[in-house]
Every structure is written in C-alpha cells, then in structure tokens.
C-alpha cells in the first residue's frame, strides 16, 4: 500500500521536474535559472549541515571540507567514467546519459564525503561546543591544504579534469531538484524517526541520553556521516555547475555561509533550513552589484540575529503542510 502510494508520488514528481526543467530551458533566462539551481544546492547544504549542527547540537565549522571532498570526488569520478566509456569533446553523451554520469559521480561524492565525515567525526565528536567547532575547522583547513598540494587534482589552480573547457556542466534543474528532494526526504525521515529523537536528546543532555542506553558517540558519528554525505552531494552538483573547482572555493567563509542559512531558518528545523538556504541564494544574487558590502551585511545579520534571537528565526519549529496534504504517520509523533 505504502509502496504504491510512494511510486505514484515519485512518478508525478519526476514528471513535474521534467516539465519545469523544459520550461526553464525554454522560457527563463539563464541568470534566473542559475539562482534557482543555487537555491537547490544550498537547500541540500543547509539540510545536511542542520542534521549535525541543529538537530544534534554538535557545532561543526568545517563542512566546507566535506563539500570539497564531495566536489572533487564527483568530478574525478565523472571525468574518469566519461573517458572510460569513450566519451570525448567530439562524442558528447546524450542528455539522459549526462544526468546518469553525474548521478553516479554524486554517489561517489557522497561516499567519499561520508567517509571523511566518519574520519573527522569519530575522533572529534568526543569534544564539546566550541572545541568541536575549532577542531572541525582545523580538519577542513587540512582537507583544503591537501587538495592545494595534490598536483594530480590541479593543486592550487583547481581541478578541471585536464580539460581546457573545464568540467562538463551537467548540473541542471532536473538533477539538482531530484537530488535535493531525495536527500531532504531521507534526512527529514531520519530526523523524525526514533534516531532523530535520540539526536535531539543528545543536543539537550548528552549524559542523560547516554544513561538511557544510547551510545551517544555512535549516534553522533552516524549523524556526522549522513550530514557529510549530503553536503558532499551538494559539492558535486556545485562542481558540475561551476565547471571548475579550486581549493579556495572551500574556505571557512563557505562553512560560515552554510551556518548563516541554518541560523536564519532556525537551528534544528528542516523546513527552516530550506527557507534559510533560499534566502541566502537570493540575497547573495540581489547584492551582486554591491559585492563589497555583501559580507558586511552578512556579518551584521549574524551578530544582530544572535543578540536578538539566538535560536534562529523559526527556532526548532517546523513549518507544517496544510492538513489535507499530510498523511497520517504511525503512532503519535
């Protein structure tokens, strides 16, 4: 029963995405499409980061590092898949094949970023609060320095797969939003399950949670892996939107931008994270002409927000769908 319902919804969704994708291509200028794509990528970043920073309350300042790992792994996989399958500049893959290649690449991106989330999370999640923030920042810097010093991945000048035109630009509306909806649904389900409840308990009181038979370290590392994998996918989409990735794309301000997104929405709220992600993508573009004041405005926003409403605009509340769109969930959650 559940599965037939789900299949129907999925088919309708894919059809809708397909139609919108076509309409955007045909009628909307590229500039606007780019902003919309940025919204989708940001939404993945924000929902991914929110799982660990918001829901679990473990403040990471290093997610730009996971995004970098995802970006490089995706790009590397796509480039090598393409040449392995015999595609080249004169033999461009068909559009559906491009999406497939991208998606396989994104799986690699998720895998490696998730692995990085494990390697970083396992030792550092024993630390609390600001110490964790600093150590994750340190890991992100190390990741960036590793990419900067790896000549096979382009070193400081960045990775473009050894192609003069850069990485193939395969990221389009359909694939961004397919992945965004998929990841947000998965993370949303996780957040509202017993696992999410345990993560929120950790945020509230780690010692009490541990005393309830929950292995808090393992739970935190699990959240870190899922969060890093999602952010890695966003990195992969970013790579194939930009056409080139440089280590300097993943500096601390990238992590701060993600934090701004989830703070605007409210720490711990999935729907809030999405709203914050869209807000950041749109305002970033709106302020393009006054670029030099953009970061200034962000920093003032950050300070003002913390002083006036440290829990974020929405707090940990969720925006609910209207009742007729909601399906009954099991139990009383």
């Amino acid at each position: 029963m559940i599965w037939t319902y789900r299949t129907a919804v999925s088919i309708a969704l894919i059809a809708a995405l397909f139609v919108i994708n076509w309409a955007l291509d045909a009628f909307v200028i590229e500039y606007v499409v780019r902003i919309i794509l940025q919204c989708g990528i940001n939404a993945i970043l924000a929902v991914g980061l929110n799982l660990i920073n918001g829901t679990t309350g473990q403040f990471s300042l290093g997610h730009a590092g996971f995004m970098a790992v995802g970006a490089y792994a995706t790009a590397f996989a796509v480039i090598h898949l393409e040449s392995g399958l015999g595609f080249s500049a004169s033999n461009i893959p068909a559009p559906w094949m491009q999406g497939l290649l991208l998606s396989v690449g994104l799986l690699f991106g998720a895998l490696f970023a998730g692995l990085a989330g494990l390697l970083v999370g396992a030792p550092s999640l024993r630390l609390r609060g600001d110490y964790l923030a600093i150590v994750t920042l340190g890991f992100a810097e190390i990741i960036r320095l590793i990419f900067t010093n790896t000549e096979a991945l382009g070193g400081a000048t960045g990775y473009s797969g050894g192609r003069p035109l850069g990485l193939p630009v395969y990221t389009n509306f359909f694939w961004v939003f397919l992945w965004a909806i998929l990841l947000i649904t998965l993370i949303g389900n996780f957040t509202f399950s017993s696992y999410g409840r345990a993560l929120r308990a950790i945020r509230e009181d780690e010692i009490a949670t541990e005393a309830l038979g929950i292995n808090t370290t393992r739970m935190k590392v699990l959240a870190s892996v899922i969060s890093a994998a999602a952010v890695g996918v966003a990195g992969g989409l970013f790579a194939h939107l930009m056409g080139t990735i440089r280590p300097d794309d993943f500096k601390m301000d990238r992590s701060v931008a993600m934090i701004v997104m989830i703070l605007i929405g409210g720490l711990g709220s999935v729907s809030g994270a999405i709203i914050g992600a869209i807000f950041v993508a749109v305002t970033l573009e709106a302020m393009r002409d006054i670029q030099q004041y953009r970061l200034l405005a962000y920093s003032l926003l950050l300070i003002g927000l913390m002083i006036a409403r440290p829990q974020g605009l929405l707090g940990s509340r969720e925006l609910r769908l209207p009742a007729f769109l909601r399906r009954k969930r099991g139990g009383a959650a």
Binding site: F59, V256, L263, Q292, L295, Y298, L302, M306, P310
Partner: peptide, 18 residues
C-alpha cells in the same frame, strides 16, 4: 547559550575584515 557568543564572534571577525 554557549554557542551564541561563538557565532557572534565569527560575525564580528567577518565584520572587521570587511
């Protein structure tokens, strides 16, 4: 809450840089 000053501090740092 403890993280609010930390985030503010990051904000101040960005502000002064800019």
């Amino acid at each position: 809450p403890r993280l609010a000053p930390l985030i503010t501090a990051i904000g101040v740092s960005l502000l002064l840089q800019n």
